Simulated scan of single mutants.
Amino acid sequence: MPTKGKSFVPIIRERSNAEIRQSKKASIMSKTSTQQEQKLLAISIAVTVLTAIAGVVFGLMIQSRTVIFDAFYTLIDSVMTLVALGVSRLIARGDDRLFQYGYWHLEPLVALVNGLVLVTACVYAVLEGLNGILSGGRVVDFGPGAIFTGIGGVICLTMAAFIHIRSTNIQSELLRIDARAWLLGGVISLGVCISFITCNLLVEAEYAYLAPYVDPFVLMLLAGSLLPLPLQTVWRATREILLIAPPELDRTAREAARIVSERHGFAAFESHVMKAGRVNFIEIGLVAPSGEMTRSFAELDEIRQEIADELGGAVPGHWLTVDFTADKRWI
């Protein structure tokens, strides 16, 4: 280990990392918020399974591929929510000897799988709708279908609002994805309801020959319009998995390091950031001026606290490491 002046620098760095990691790990997520997250996910799973089963049965009864797709979409969501619940419980366990940074990295993996599955479902629905149109459409009992999908849409939107409101103080990607899935399900159901009502009006207006094409057309239209949303989830999760630094977090960390570095006369600074699920990993290195004498640990802790304050305080969701050295190559 290189030294300049006295050999205190490597020791300071080692102690600083150990102390800050221990304090930040304890504050990343409170036990109460984790329990609330798991409770909301469990409620979501129960409601999702019930609505999915009802949708499949009713869709088969009225022979509507659109209703079946709506139920299938909901069923996919229930499976992914179940996976998310398992991940949430792993995260609540904290770090161990195998995963020493915890299980936060599983969040973007779940988001990626969820997004890919929904993308596949949407693409399949578009192709199914196109095939229905080319094959002459299908006759559907639109009256009961409008009632059922309307009720389903209200349930989905209510669940989306419920989860969003109850999870406002929880920085959970899992709940954010689940709330978005409920919102998408609600939009699909209400869209199908409107299309069924429109079809009834067409029949009454002597345009009955268009009725068989309504179901596949709406299926294709809705699935195609929803496709960009899971694609955004895939893109965001892929960025986290590839450890691409979030621009806003990077700017915030560099600005905090610059302010504190200039305030205390450090010769240089460097920052590194990454995001894994709901946790922001931030590492800041400060280079002491040439020939500077030893600073006390109390002074270094004060500097570290100033950096935390510049980042918004020691809030849950930040894993902060601050390095002090006299040799720039160590940062």
Rank of each mutant, 00 (worst) to 15 (best):
M1L: 12
M1A: 15
I12G: 12
E14Q: 15
N17H: 14
S30L: 04
L41E: 05
I43E: 13
I53N: 06
G55A: 06
G59D: 01
M61Q: 13
I62E: 07
I68P: 01
V79Y: 02
L82F: 09
Y101V: 03
W104S: 09
L109N: 12
A111C: 03
L116V: 10
V117S: 06
C122M: 01
N131T: 10
R138K: 15
P144T: 04
I151C: 08
I151V: 14
I163E: 07
Q171C: 09
Q171K: 11
S172M: 03
L183F: 06
L184Q: 01
S189W: 03
D215S: 00
F217I: 05
L231N: 06
T233Q: 14
T233P: 05
R236E: 14
A237V: 05
R251F: 11
E255T: 11
A257G: 05
I259A: 03
E262I: 09
H264D: 12
G265Q: 09
F281R: 10
E283F: 08
S290P: 10
S290T: 11
M293F: 13
E302G: 10
R304F: 08
Q305S: 15
Q305V: 06
A308R: 07
G312T: 06
A314C: 11
V315W: 02
V322Q: 04
A326Y: 01
D327H: 10
D327K: 02
